[in-house]
Design a protein around this nucleic acid. Structure first.
Lengths: 146, 146
DNA sequence: TTTTTACACTTGACTAATCAAGTGACTAAA
DNA sequence: TTTAGTCACTTGATTAGTCAAGTGTAAAAA
């Protein structure tokens, strides 16, 4: 077993950061009685509603099965509604869901941003964004040609 | 709802990348009959063995409960062994676990690195590493003072 | 000596995701 | 008109994690 590569060190940092910031974010969002994953889904619905489940699944990069269960939970909490239109199901926010999202939106974005604003300058954040964009696009490409 | 901040855009890229690269990595590691999370744990055990469960939990940034379940799975597969020493349990690799890790190690590190090597220059990778290190350390700090 | 405290670990209830097999409804070929 | 196919969605089995309450053992206090 040879030594750690630069790439594997970056990978570890990114993985750890994602895990930690997710935990902190879930803790933060508890005041709105919502999780990070749910916030993500609600955001996408509010942007694209009315939207089908399969389209939504693609937007949040989750499988059909994953989105099905997630929506079941959100529906149970009364945040979204599914309507059987023809043979597909159309998703939209309920008033309760819309309210919850509006309440959480600014706070959550500020919270997410704080991770970077606290540790990097504006210039460095721009650099990080451009580097991560390229890395992420590359992995997206790898996903599609499987 | 005001517009997206720079930080929230970075956050999205990082989150998506982590999710995608994890899926791809799990797919890749199937040839070794192991998952990304398991590889991570085996790596830490091999570096620090013999190690207690609570120490290990800290190394892989997972809760006590999480590591307990993970080790149950790894033990069931015969990759690690737990020994009740005094009142604490000491974890170490079995021969099977050590072999599996040695087999997968180089390939997995090369796989992880490929994400960055394919999309960034050596110089850019160094920049990304230094930026992500600072961001991750900041989130680690936030984790500890809760 | 009994009782409390502290620590290491486990477990139950839950969220969130995967894959793969299973429904249910409409569409097109036999 | 029956049959086969396709598409959108659901569901069962599994992995992986959280939190919080529970268990068992050893040391310290009563």
């Amino acid at each position: 077993m040879k030594n750690n590569t630069l790439g594997s060190l970056i990978w570890l940092r990114i993985t750890r950061f994602t895990h930690q910031s997710n935990l902190l974010s879930n803790e933060f969002l508890k005041q709105f009685d919502i999780t990070t994953a749910q916030f993500d889904v609600l955001m996408q619905i509010s942007t694209y509603e009315p939207i089908t489940q399969s389209e939504l699944a693609k937007k949040v990069t989750v499988t059909q099965g994953g989105i099905s269960r997630m929506l079941t939970r959100l529906e149970k909490d009364g945040l979204i509604k599914r309507k059987q239109d023809w043979k597909i199901k159309t998703i939209s926010l309920t008033n309760k869901g819309r309210e919850k999202l509006i309440n959480a939106f600014d706070a959550q974005l500020a919270f997410q941003s704080s991770f970077f604003e606290e540790s990097l300058t504006e210039e460095e954040q721009k650099t990080l964004y451009s580097l991560m964009s390229r890395v992420q696009k590359n992995s997206e490409m790898k996903m599609s040609d499987r």
